[in-house]
Simulated assay, not measured.
Amino acid sequence: MVSISNDGAAESLGDRILDAAASCVLAYGIDRVTLAEIARRAGVSRPTVYRRFPDTRSILAALLTARIVHVLDDVESTGSGREPLVARIVRVAQRLRHDEVIMAVLHTAPELAMVYIAERLGTSQQILIDAVAGELKLAQEDGSVRGGDPRQLATMCLLITQSAIQSAQMVEPILDADALARELTLALNGYLAP
Rank of each mutant, 00 (worst) to 15 (best):
Q94W: 04
Q126T: 10
I160P: 01
S3I: 15
Q125M: 09
E83Y: 00
T78I: 06
G147C: 02
Q169T: 14
A36S: 14
R41P: 02
L136T: 00
A154F: 01
A22H: 01
D73C: 06
E37K: 11
A154N: 04
R146D: 10
V69L: 06
D74L: 01
D74F: 08
D15V: 03
P194H: 11
R95H: 10
V171E: 08
F53Y: 15
Y191N: 07
Y191K: 07
V75W: 00
L112R: 07
Y50F: 06
E83D: 15
V145C: 10
L35D: 02
L136N: 01
D55Y: 07
D19L: 11
A133S: 13
F53R: 04
E172Y: 02
R151D: 10
L106F: 14
D73P: 01
E141F: 03
S144E: 11
L106H: 11
D142E: 13
D178I: 04
D142Q: 02
L186A: 14
A39Q: 08
D149I: 05
L72I: 15
Y50S: 14
L64E: 09
R182G: 07
R151W: 03
R46S: 08
S23N: 03
D178Y: 03
A139I: 07
A27F: 01
V71S: 04
L159P: 02
V132P: 03
H70N: 09
A177H: 09
D178Q: 13
D74E: 13
Q169V: 11
A66T: 08
L153W: 02
A177Y: 00
S80G: 14
I38C: 08
R40K: 10
Q152A: 15
L13D: 00
I59S: 06
V69C: 04
A181E: 15
L153Q: 00
D74Q: 07
V75S: 07
E83C: 03
R52D: 02
R67C: 05
R67M: 05
D142K: 01
A154T: 07
T155W: 04
A93R: 05
M170D: 11
V33N: 00
V171S: 13
L106A: 12
H107E: 15
D74N: 09
M114N: 13
R40V: 05
H70E: 15
A66W: 05
V2E: 09
D31Y: 08
R146A: 12
I68R: 01
A21L: 10
E119S: 13
A22C: 14
S77Y: 02
R91N: 06
Q169I: 13
D74G: 13
A93N: 05
